Simulated scan of single mutants.
Amino acid sequence: MSTTASGPARRAEADLEALPLAPPAATGLREVVRRRYLLGMLVRNTIKSRYQGTVLGWLWSYLQPAIRFAMFYFLFQVMIGRGSGMENFAIHLFAGMVIVHFFTETFNGGTQSLVQNRSLITKLPVPREMFPVARMLVAAWHTVPMLIILVVPCVLLGWRPDLVGMAAALLGFTLAAALGLALGLLFSVGNVFMRDVGKIAQTLTQFVTFSVPMMYPFTLVDDRFGDPWSGYYLLNPMAEAVLLIQRGFWTGTTSDPEVTAAVHLPDQLFARGLTMTAISIVLLVLAQRVFSRLEARVPERL
């Protein structure tokens, strides 16, 4: 969080810093939920700081993804005809981009959250898990406009929500949220002790874009490498999350959704998604325990 913010952002930060000191707060994600009012203030302050000084303000969160989708549609669908082998390839691409954006912003934002909020951490007796959680909620807030931009062309192409598809999309977001928050907790406390951890997180998220079936279909991986390598590829939880959201939105825009899902999506999609989500939740619990062991040393290192 910037300490040079002005206007509403500065007033919001001043309100947080003006809260009376109290004995050391209990820690843990449950305590973060209990203090949801303070969590809401932190989320609002972070969002205001991002658009501080702009004329359009939060409208940029709609304008930027809309322009991005238009560019991808023109490039992949019109110019180079990538969609000739797959229906509505631009939807395939943008659906993956939505969930990748949510994950990377949760991961990177969570990693930097303790360092960027050092002034609050040293003054307020709050559970420090609140800062990575707040960055996940900010990422979710910025993902909503992207979802709206995704849904509009889907509806125009004949997509209608179905129970299985919505369950797939929800499972994909749950998987990305649990994994992103777990990594955000681990890397945020590591970044306090060694700033190189933040650079490592940024480097890792760059690989995410190319390691998921977003700019290329899963069938390309399966055809090029076959078993068992395509199976190893599916061990990437973000690849699974992308496939789940594509099942929720992209397949419904094609002329025969059932055939599209059978051809372009792997078998056992839900079973693998549920397994990876469970593993991510276990990782989140372990990450929170590691965070709790190290957080007492965070103020002195900041």
Score class of each variant (00 low, 15 high):
Met1Asn: 05
Thr3Gln: 13
Arg10Cys: 05
Ala12Glu: 14
Ala12Tyr: 11
Asp15His: 10
Asp15Ile: 07
Asp15Trp: 10
Leu19Glu: 14
Pro24Lys: 04
Ala25Ser: 15
Ala25Asn: 04
Ala26Lys: 11
Tyr37His: 14
Tyr37Trp: 13
Met41Gln: 15
Val43Arg: 04
Thr46Glu: 15
Thr46Ser: 15
Ser49Arg: 12
Arg50Trp: 14
Gln52Tyr: 12
Thr54Ser: 15
Thr54Cys: 02
Thr54Gln: 04
Gly57Leu: 07
Leu59Trp: 13
Gln64Leu: 13
Gln64His: 08
Pro65Ala: 01
Ile67Asn: 00
Phe69Gln: 06
Ala70Thr: 11
Ala70Ser: 14
Phe72Gln: 13
Gln77Arg: 08
Val78Leu: 14
Ile80Cys: 01
Gly81His: 03
Gly83Ser: 15
Ser84Ile: 09
Ser84Leu: 10
Phe89Ile: 04
Phe89Asn: 01
Ala90Val: 01
Leu93Glu: 04
Leu93Asp: 09
Ala95Val: 02
Gly96His: 06
Phe103Asn: 05
Phe103Pro: 04
Thr106Glu: 08
Gly110His: 04
Val115Ile: 13
Gln116His: 12
Thr122Met: 09
Met130Ser: 06
Leu137Ala: 13
Ala139Arg: 01
Leu147Glu: 12
Leu150Phe: 09
Leu156Arg: 10
Leu157His: 01
Arg160Gly: 10
Asp162Asn: 12
Leu163Cys: 01
Met166Gln: 14
Ala169His: 06
Ala169Asp: 08
Ala169Thr: 14
Ala178Ile: 03
Gly180Met: 06
Ala182Ser: 13
Ala182Pro: 02
Leu183Phe: 13
Leu183Ile: 11
Gly184Cys: 03
Leu185Val: 10
Leu186Glu: 09
Ser188Gly: 04
Ser188Leu: 02
Asn191Thr: 11
Asn191Cys: 02
Arg195Ser: 13
Val197Pro: 06
Gln202Arg: 11
Thr203Lys: 03
Thr205Tyr: 02
Gln206Ile: 05
Phe207Ala: 14
Phe210Asp: 01
Ser211Leu: 15
Met215His: 03
Met215Trp: 12
Leu220Cys: 01
Val221Pro: 00
Asp222Gln: 15
Asp223Lys: 10
Trp229Phe: 13
Trp229Ser: 00
Gly231Phe: 02
Gly231Cys: 01
Pro237Met: 03
Met238Arg: 00
Val242Ser: 03
Val242Asn: 02
Leu243Ile: 05
Leu244Glu: 07
Thr251Asp: 08
Gly252Glu: 09
Thr253Ala: 10
Thr260Asn: 00
Leu265Pro: 06
Leu265Ser: 10
Leu265Trp: 11
Leu269Trp: 11
Phe270Ser: 06
Ala271Ser: 11
Arg272Met: 11
Met276Lys: 14
Met276Ile: 03
Thr277Gly: 07
Ser280Arg: 06
Val282Pro: 05
Leu283Ile: 08
Leu284Phe: 09
Leu284Cys: 07
Val285His: 12
Leu286Phe: 14
Gln288Cys: 13
Phe291Cys: 01
Arg293Gly: 01
Leu294Glu: 02
Arg297His: 12
Pro299Asn: 03
Arg301Ala: 15
Leu302Gly: 03
Leu302Ala: 07
